[in-house]
Design a protein around this nucleic acid. Structure first.
Lengths: 144, 144
DNA sequence: CGTGCTAGGTTGGATTTTCAATCCCAGGAG
DNA sequence: CTCCTGGGATTGAAAATCCAACCTAGCACG
C-alpha cells in the first residue's frame, strides 16, 4: 500500500522521521531520561511527545524503564538501535553547524579518544569521505 | 520565539526535517531531476512536493535550473549544501537496512574508490567510530 | 480541426496532525 | 487541607496534509 521507491531511507524515516522524534532522541543521547525534561528541552507538546516516545519504544529504539512503583514513574533509555542513530544526529549537527547555524556551534562533543569530536562519514574500504564525486548507486529499489 | 534547546540538529531539521524533504533529496542524489519523476518515486502529493522543493531551493540545498523556455520547464540539482547531506542519507539508509528493513538492502552504492560502499562515521582525530562508549557532550546549547 | 499527451505545477475541499491549555491521578511536603 | 511533582490523557481550535481535478503551453496524431 506504501507508494514510492522501496528504500531503507524511507523505512528509517517512518520510524524516526516524524517531527520531534529525533529531537527527543537527541535529549536522550545528552543524558536526559524523563518525560518532563525531554518535553521542556525539545519544546514538543506533551501529547505529541508521549505519542512519539511510545512509537520509539514500540520500534525498539528506546526502552522505558520504571524507576518507581507508587506512583509509577519511568525513564527512557536508548537501545542498541537507538545508540546506532548517534552518527546520524552528529551528522545533522555538523551539517546544521556549517550550513544553517550562525556563529559558534552551540553543542560540542568529546570523543571517547579524548579529542573534541569532528565526525566524518567515510567509505569503510578506502577511508575516504563518502560524498566524493563518483559515488553512485549500483542497485535501486523498485518504485511501486 | 523558538522554544527548546539551541541546537544545530534542530536547525538542520527545520530545513530538511519535514516529511518528503529527505526523500526528494534522495531521488535527486539518485540522479532524478524532474518534478514528475520525483513525485512518482517518493509518493509525495504534488502540492506538498512543490512546497518542499521551493523551500529547499530557498534554503540553498537545491538549485532550480530552467532547461526549456517555451513552455518553461525545470530541473532540480543539489548545491554543495545539498551534496553535504549525502552522508546523512547514507547513514539513514544503513540504519534502515540494519534495524528496519527485512531482507536484502534494496539500494546499494559504489564508492568513488570502486568498492561497494559501506559508510561509517568516525572521529576525525582518531579514526574510531563516533558512537563508542565514552563519547559525550562537553558543551550544550541553552534551553529557551 | 479536435483529441490526446507531456511537463510542471496550482486550486479546492476533506481529512489528519499538531498545538496549547486544561484535567487527572498518585504520593509527599507543609 | 492544600500545594507541588511526575507522567501523562483529554479537548477544541489551528495548521498541515492528502487526493483529485484543473490549468497552461506546446507538440503530435488523424
Amino acid at each position: 500500500m506504501r507508494r514510492g521507491r522501496e528504500c531503507s531511507v524511507a523505512e528509517a524515516l517512518e520510524v524516526v522521521g516524524e517531527r520531534w522524534s529525533l529531537l527527543a532522541l537527541r535529549e536522550i543521547m545528552l543524558g536526559e531520561r524523563r518525560f518532563n525534561q525531554i518535553a521542556e528541552n525539545t519544546g514538543a507538546s506533551r501529547d505529541i511527545l508521549a505519542a512519539r516516545l511510545r512509537k520509539l519504544v514500540d520500534a525498539g529504539v528506546l526502552e522505558k524503564v520504571q524507576y518507581e512503583d507508587h506512583p509509577p514513574r519511568f525513564e527512557y533509555y536508548p537501545t542498541e538501535a537507538g545508540r546506532a542513530l548517534q552518527p546520524i544526529l552528529l551528522g545533522l549537527m555538523a551539517w546544521g553547524d556549517k550550513y544553517v547555524h550562525q556563529g559558534e556551534p552551540p553543542t560540542l562533543w568529546r570523543h571517547a579518544c579524548g579529542a573534541e569530536l569532528h565526525a566524518v562519514t567515510i567509505c569503510e574500504h578506502c577511508g575516504e569521505p563518502v560524498n566524493a564525486p563518483g559515488t553512485h548507486a549500483i542497485r535501486l529499489g523498485a518504485v511501486h
